[in-house]
Nucleic acid binder design. Sequence first.
DNA 1: AGCCTAGGCTTACACTGTAAGCAGGTCAAG
DNA 2: CTTGACCTGCTTACAGTGTAAGCCTAGGCT
Lengths: 222, 222
Amino acid sequence: MSPDRQPRGRQKTPLSRERVIAAAMEIASEKGRAAATMRAIGARLGVEAMSLYNHVSSRDDLLDGMVDAVFAEIELPEPGAHWKEAMRRRAFSARAALGRHPWAVGLMDSRSRPGDATLRHHDAVLGSLRSGGFSIRQAAHAVSVLDSYIYGFVLQEVALPFGNAEEAGDVAEGIFGDLPEDRYPYLREIAMEHALAPGYDYGDEFEFGLALILDGLVPDEV
Amino acid sequence: MSPDRQPRGRQKTPLSRERVIAAAMEIASEKGRAAATMRAIGARLGVEAMSLYNHVSSRDDLLDGMVDAVFAEIELPEPGAHWKEAMRRRAFSARAALGRHPWAVGLMDSRSRPGDATLRHHDAVLGSLRSGGFSIRQAAHAVSVLDSYIYGFVLQEVALPFGNAEEAGDVAEGIFGDLPEDRYPYLREIAMEHALAPGYDYGDEFEFGLALILDGLVPDEV
DNA sequence: AGCCTAGGCTTACACTGTAAGCAGGTCAAG
DNA sequence: CTTGACCTGCTTACAGTGTAAGCCTAGGCT
């Protein structure tokens, strides 16, 4: 109606699939996955919700893109490296990437079409194992355990209803506070004498399980 | 308005938290997590959406209840059993329960307050390990690896965009179909020569990783 | 000059969770 | 028996969701 608004043309950096996905990731990181609505993403880009559909075919497509962007952040195993060291590094890198974008874990179970970064990632991991002497079958086994462990660990980490020791104390209080002493004795024990001890960080557990799994894996032909 | 409708009283089995949660679980299982809206749950129970709020304090509370109901289905370790066998059985039972309710995995990362069944479950698991000679610290390690593996495995299983071999073929076709032969060579290799081979079922991988982890765990005092 | 097209905008719709308030039934106390 | 305080379910209403359909305009083409 009013002619005094900004002319529409090309004078601002144009939208693109990448910019849309990046904006969505920012919002998800700042305010949670649920906050990344089409309208909110549009607002961040100074644009209406519907304009996003020129670059993303649906919200689902956008989510696919976000997950793929997270995979793109994971360090690929170096082709020459020993498989064990390569797997160790990639595990840490994956955990870090997923930790940086906690919303990604919850998205994974509903994504249907893997993106380019995701495929490249898995291909590189398989490549590292195959070059390290793993048979196809053993490589499949190895990928399955490792990925399960990594995703599951992050899933649990993200699901923890507290971020620091103080909050952990509050949560424990909330659970055990008004319960008879003899309910959940082992849970109580581990909370009081271990998890709530100063210096405890659940994240440190990652190392243990990873080492256990890596030591259990062996290529067939030695 | 019209007086000809059913009188409101106690003549039908009354609603209850359990019935609401059960109805929600049924709908989620049949039509997916997203289909379990308050209105749909109400409809299944022959009731309006708002009536559910007399038994559940919010949608979040309902989701908490659903997750807890899944945990309730997991077999608790028998007090007398050897820890290794107990952990093995519990792992299979957990995977089966989560497989029966695939929506549960995606819910776990956003639930904040564990329910009674969940707490009882974790307590029993810890108890089994402690009785088997694990120190507190080692028990914490063991639970962390095992749970990570189980949840992560199911997460991947659920995320697979196919349910049977035929669909798997379609998906592979969709990915590799219009791509140069040399893209993702290792992925291609494992798909063609392993995953698409007759008789392959990703679920079978579970056994391998579980055995690997269980063999890597050892109580401190032997 | 005229036209096409890409990328924005506007409007509209069906559907979500839930706040607020109402109505009929149950049950305990007077 | 009456009264009144719960319950429990119903109705209405609201803000917020994803997205289909169609419009408008600037830029680039012939």
